[in-house]
Amino acid sequence: MTASPTFRHAVPADAVRCFEIETAAYEGDEAATLEKIATRIAQYPEGFLILEAEGGIAGFINSGCAFEVVMSDEAFKELIGHDPVAPNVVIMSVVIDPAEQGKGYSKLLMQRFIRDMREAGKKSIHLMCKEQHVALYAKMGYRYTQPSASDHGGVAWHEMVMDL
């Protein structure tokens, strides 16, 4: 029997492994650079949740907080404009190592992230996803808002929000 996954906040030493997972799971320019991941860990570890399974990092969610959410703001991906006390959370990546997919980890990770953000007193969680993931996030409690103005990575994105 395998052990249940565990959760923790990221530390700087996690950046390289998270970058490996990010580049394995996202196509081309969609993946964050190692520098962006390291910045997100350094500036907002409370919003960088790691799921560990079988003794290693299997996936993560990273985010920042804003008073006014503009999902197409590319600078925010480097946490420019991030304020940890702001009430609105913006998810930048939800990633499970391709070798670990199909085990229900993304749902467990999102449930824990939502719980943590609720406990932190946040008011909403925003994310962008590809069309094929809209139904998945809707099942998790997100509401579709609009097609995104972002063309990050040359892909069409859709904006969703959850009120906490």
Rank of each mutant, 00 (worst) to 15 (best):
V134C: 05
H82I: 03
G102D: 12
G59E: 12
A66F: 00
T33A: 06
H133K: 15
I57D: 11
H82A: 01
E74G: 01
A3D: 13
K36A: 15
K122Q: 08
K130T: 13
H126Q: 09
L49W: 03
E78M: 10
E131H: 15
A86D: 01
E131V: 09
R115V: 12
P12H: 10
L109E: 09
I96T: 10
I21L: 15
I21G: 07
D163A: 13
E20F: 02
V70A: 13
M128H: 03
G81V: 02
T6M: 08
I96L: 10
N62H: 08
I61S: 02
I37R: 03
I114C: 12
K103G: 01
P45S: 01
P98R: 06
C129G: 11
G141M: 06
E35C: 01
T33H: 08
R118L: 12
L164K: 00
T39C: 08
L109K: 05
D151M: 11
F67G: 07
G102V: 12
I41Q: 06
K77C: 07
A86Y: 02
E52K: 06
F76D: 01
W157N: 05
I61M: 05
I91Q: 01
R40Q: 11
A10Q: 13
K36T: 09
A75R: 12
I61D: 01
K122A: 07
A120V: 02
V85L: 12
A75M: 13
A3W: 07
D83G: 08
F67R: 07
E22S: 02
A58C: 03
V134W: 03
T2K: 12
I91T: 02
S124N: 10
I21H: 09
I21P: 08
L34A: 10
A10T: 12
A149C: 03
Q132M: 11
L127F: 07
M117E: 15
E35Y: 05
K123R: 15
S106W: 00
M117C: 13
A149N: 13
M110P: 02
F60H: 14
P87W: 09
P87K: 06
I80Q: 04
L164S: 00
K123D: 14
P98L: 13
G56N: 12
A53Q: 14
C18S: 09
M162G: 08
M128Q: 14
F48E: 05
L164V: 01
V90G: 01
D14A: 10
C18W: 00
E52F: 10
M160Q: 04
V70I: 10
G59S: 08
M110G: 06
Y144H: 15
G154M: 07
E100M: 15
G141A: 07
A66W: 00
Q132F: 11
M162H: 12
